[in-house]
């Protein structure tokens, strides 16, 4: 495994951390946080897929002067924008799912007076 693979591996590590939180934690809020981590890990990986390491220096958006050949240069060196668009969509979806799951958790807290899944009937698993 080369150093270039490290960011991807880290994204997977975050993914696994999220899975662990969902599976192992008994607190509803912690499960929700695990869900968020899972979501972010997937988003991170998507962005990484489209990322392109610059040849030298930090990635700075260049000031474009000139005609079509400049644009072609940019296209050849720029980051793939499609995954970023996908991640934006995915973040919006994640937001709505989170809003819903938090609303559910609040209603569950009203019913049981606790966030502990062990004290709820069907959620033990």
């Amino acid at each position: 495994m080369t150093l270039a693979m490290a960011p991807y591996m880290l994204a997977f590590l975050i993914f696994v951390v999220g899975l662990y939180a969902i599976v192992a934690k008994r607190n509803l809020i912690k499960v929700i946080v695990g869900l968020l981590i899972l979501d972010y890990a997937a988003n991170l990986l998507l962005v990484l897929v489209g990322y392109r390491t610059p040849a030298e220096g930090a990635p700075v958006a260049p000031i474009l002067v000139g005609g079509a050949e400049k644009a072609a240069d940019l296209a050849a060196s720029a980051v793939d924008p499609l995954p970023q668009a996908l991640v934006l969509t995915s973040i919006v979806i994640g937001l709505s799912v989170t809003a819903l799951v938090v609303a559910l958790a609040i209603r569950l807290h009203e019913k049981y007076g606790t966030f502990d899944t062990g004290l709820m009937r069907n959620l033990k698993g």
Binding site: L104, A105, L108, K111, Y112, M120, R121, N122
Partner: peptide
């Protein structure tokens, strides 16, 4: 309660 748990 049941419905909320199932949905969660």
């Amino acid at each position: 309660a049941d419905e909320l748990e199932a949905s969660f």
